[in-house]
């Protein structure tokens, strides 16, 4: 787990440095002396290994600060725990993503602090849409296998897989925003602003979840313990709801992990289409700008979410299936 995080941080660091161009090489033709001075200020002229160690140190090593600490464009921490018992104004501060190289009056920490809650709200809503639509459709399809319901559900699922948000977004905007005028096409802030983008993101996921639920449930329904449950006279609702679904949901939860990580850290297309100030946009723009610190920050954030999501997935296994023990 930590190996993966470490590998990702190294690969990203090396890869983004291999790409030609730098954060200060703009088309406006900045004098070389200024570029040099900027490189020096942000220590971009130091050896790569030194830069990497420097960056990781700022990120990982917690710091105790006294009351002279002020948030600045080089020092801005995500986690700030006041420790007044050690003296007035003393605090433990952790995870400093460093200054943004492209937006020089902002820190990466600040950008993440602004964008992450928005992206997370959208991501959670999209995930809910995916699960709330996907699981019941998949269940119905599996319970009514090879009937009209099954074929209908699976056709809808193929439809969903074929409509990426890049198509669904404009379509929803036109239908609900422009023609029916019931929901805003762009913007952010109210529940109404959340509905369309959440659907644009979640519908495709719901199709995937529906297919997976169906396949998994079909397999589970053939198990002996389902026959046992029926044989001892349990009602169909209990058999399906408690015995079957609980086991069938495990593969679904498995894919939900990475999916959640991707959704929570923002998706560029939907954020662009709907004008949402999330993290996905900062991420994509940072690569074009060669904003090295912002690239590192968002990638590591994503990787961390992925690791945590997978951990939660592993923990829920034990919840759904006590046979799986955590080692």
């Amino acid at each position: 787990m930590f190996f993966v995080l470490f590998a990702i941080s190294v690969v990203t660091f090396v890869l983004m440095r291999l790409v030609p161009g730098g954060p200060f090489n703009t088309e406006r033709g900045v004098p070389p002396a200024i570029v040099e001075a900027l490189n020096k200020r942000y220590k971009l002229d130091a050896p790569l290994v030194e830069q990497y160690i420097d960056y990781m140190q700022g990120l990982l090593v917690p710091r105790l600060t006294d009351r002279t600490y002020r948030r600045s464009v080089v020092e801005d921490y995500i986690i700030n725990i006041p420790m007044d018992f050690l003296g007035e104004g003393v605090a433990l501060r952790w995870i400093n993503f460093g200054p943004s190289l492209a937006k020089r009056n902002q820190t990466v920490t600040g950008i993440i602090r602004d964008g992450l809650p928005t992206s997370m709200q959208l991501g959670i809503a999209a995930l809910l849409v995916g699960v709330v639509i996907g699981v019941p459709i998949g269940t119905i399809a599996a319970l009514r296998q090879n009937t009209g319901w099954d074929y209908l559900s699976m056709s809808v699922a193929i439809l969903g897989v074929s409509i990426p948000s890049i198509i669904l977004g404009p379509l929803l905007q036109y239908i609900f925003g422009v023609t029916l005028k019931v929901l805003p096409t762009t913007g952010w802030g109210t529940i109404n602003h959340l509905i369309l983008p959440a659907f644009a993101l979640g519908f495709t996921e719901s199709a995937l979840i529906a297919r997976l639920t169906r396949a998994s449930l079909l397999q589970v329904l053939r198990e002996d313990y389902i026959r046992t449950a029926r044989a001892k006279g349990l009602s169909e609702r209990v058999v399906i709801g408690v015995h079957a679904l609980k086991n069938a949901i495990i593969p679904v939860v498995t894919v939900l992990g990475p999916l959640a990580a991707a959704l929570l850290t923002g998706t560029f297309v939907v954020e662009t289409l709907f004008g949402i100030p999330g993290l996905g946009r900062s991420f994509v723009l940072s690569i074009g700008n060669r904003d090295y610190t912002l690239i590192m920050g968002t990638v590591l954030l994503y990787a961390m979410f992925l690791v945590v999501a997978n951990l939660i997935v592993d923990l829920t296994y034990a919840l759904f299936d006590p046979r799986i023990r955590l080692h």
């Binding site: 983004m16 690569i287 990638v299």
Partner: peptide
Amino acid sequence: VFYAFPTLLFIILLMAF
């Protein structure tokens, strides 16, 4: 490692490269 790496970042970096 490639699996855990954000595909999007990789592909954009490749393009930029």
